[in-house]
Design a protein around this nucleic acid. Structure first.
Lengths: 73, 73
DNA sequence: TTGTGACTTTTAGTCCGTC
DNA sequence: GGACGGACTAAAAGTCACA
């Protein structure tokens, strides 16, 4: 599958920025958002083709909209 | 799993609007975006928890950014 | 032109761990 | 605090025939 991971990488990078700006560790944020800690790490590394429901969990965990989460992605 | 399908439904509705505003049928758009006709239909009906790579296909098919696609969702 | 159920294959997503 | 691996289960991807 995996052609170029760009959208996943850009998304992961964006999540990492927002998550760390919010003062969370990966593990802390994952617990907060209701995700697995290894999954969160994989998303931030651009290795996970995350589905919409989990995108929403991240947006909610960051207290922003999904559109904002994709801003610049 | 499935709590309320809202994000999927709202996303599907948004896709349907944009797709039909762009003058495409489901079938025509699906072919254009590289998806199956019935898959596209399922997305628009909020029945598919679509992952990021396919979200991107739809955004590209509509010639907008993913952030724009989620605008108002 | 779209909805829908059913189906197989692939991958998302969880959970254990180590470095 | 984060990267990464293995093994597993749940669910997404993708396709079909029929309404």
């Amino acid at each position: 599958m995996a052609k170029r991971a760009d959208i996943l990488e850009r998304f992961g990078k964006r999540v990492r920025e927002l998550r760390s700006d919010a003062g969370y560790s990966q593990e802390g944020f994952a617990a907060h958002a209701g995700l697995d800690r290894t999954y969160q790490g994989g998303v931030e590394r651009g290795q996970r083709n995350i589905a919409l429901r989990n995108v929403e969990k991240i947006a909610k965990g960051l207290k922003i909209s999904v559109a904002e989460l994709f801003d610049g992605v």
